[in-house]
Design a protein around this nucleic acid. Structure first.
Lengths: 157, 157
DNA sequence: GCATGATGGTCTCAATTCGCAACTCATCGG
DNA sequence: CCGATGAGTTGCGAATTGAGACCATCATGC
């Protein structure tokens, strides 16, 4: 049973103050995000996830349970009276930008030039354009144009 | 030595056609993206990475080597004649949107309401706004408004 | 009312990976 | 030359992973 109002782990965070680290604690392993990817692409059943990802069954059991515990997936007892289904929660669907940026980085940096790969398209069949970070003023942001404002520790008084 | 023109592994991909899976093969473990995060935040030396992440030293050795092999980090023999430094390559800096979306998801979904966390700000100290996927027409995109066009098979002619 | 087959797991066990601590090796400062 | 610091490497026990066999439940056929 979770102790907080959210479905977050009581367990220790790798780095409690950093949202990046927390997110990675929840989905930062080899498989979780691939499960989420397939859920977004329509997978619902245990066997469907297994078939698409090729993940070992015991690990899939574990990941589905963890993702469910963390409020990223939820279990439905299927409309047609059939077996259990796993569907994304709002938090799960909110991982879409993460998967999109991972995909876009991969398209550019994990394929040799000209090597074919799958592509994301919107309803009209148009390619989804690249996500580009911008500052509050709309100016494109780069990795070294930002910095982290820490708010974790006790005030420096 | 890599066989392709890029610094990509000869090894087998989890899912060779999917850019998401390839990216996760390269940086989809507990630590790699935290190393990249700290590199973006100014970390350069082995001990600095170790101190910030708390990662075990042998694992850090391994991750730094892998990230370097994959062309995400590169080694410089420090301008001041000092020890070796690890700096991000262009591909490494291109992971910024990934870290940003991870962070933004975490801020919203991995913290209890009102719980304090660090924040990203741009040069002017303004909070970096949320990244929102849009279609080619600029219309906001949701996880279920897209689909994957497969292009894994042999080229059609 | 029992065999058959699909679905959704669990169990076992080997292999890999991780984390800690101790050790090495080079360099720097004095 | 001596100790301190940086950058790892090595050894080893613990945790995680993966492959595959095994098990329970439900629907169907008969």
């Amino acid at each position: 049973m979770p102790s907080t109002s959210t479905g977050l782990p009581n367990a220790v965070w790798t780095d409690p103050d950093c949202p990046v680290a927390r997110t990675l604690d929840l989905v930062g392993d080899r498989w979780s995000l691939l499960v989420v990817r397939d859920a977004m692409d329509g997978a619902r059943s245990f066997t469907e996830f297994q078939r698409r990802t090729g993940i070992a069954r015991n690990i899939l059991t574990d990941r589905l349970r963890k993702l469910t515990d963390h409020g990223i997936l939820t279990q439905r007892t299927a409309p047609s009276g059939r077996r259990r289904q796993y569907v994304l929660t709002d938090a799960g669907r909110a991982l879409f930008p993460v998967l999109l940026t991972l995909r876009q980085w991969g398209e550019r940096h994990a394929f040799a030039p000209g090597e074919p790969h799958s592509t994301l398209v919107d309803q009209h069949g148009a390619r989804v354009p690249e996500l580009k970070p911008t500052g509050a003023d709309g100016v494109p942001l780069d990795a070294d144009a930002i910095h982290v404002r820490k708010t974790g520790g006790p005030p420096p008084g």
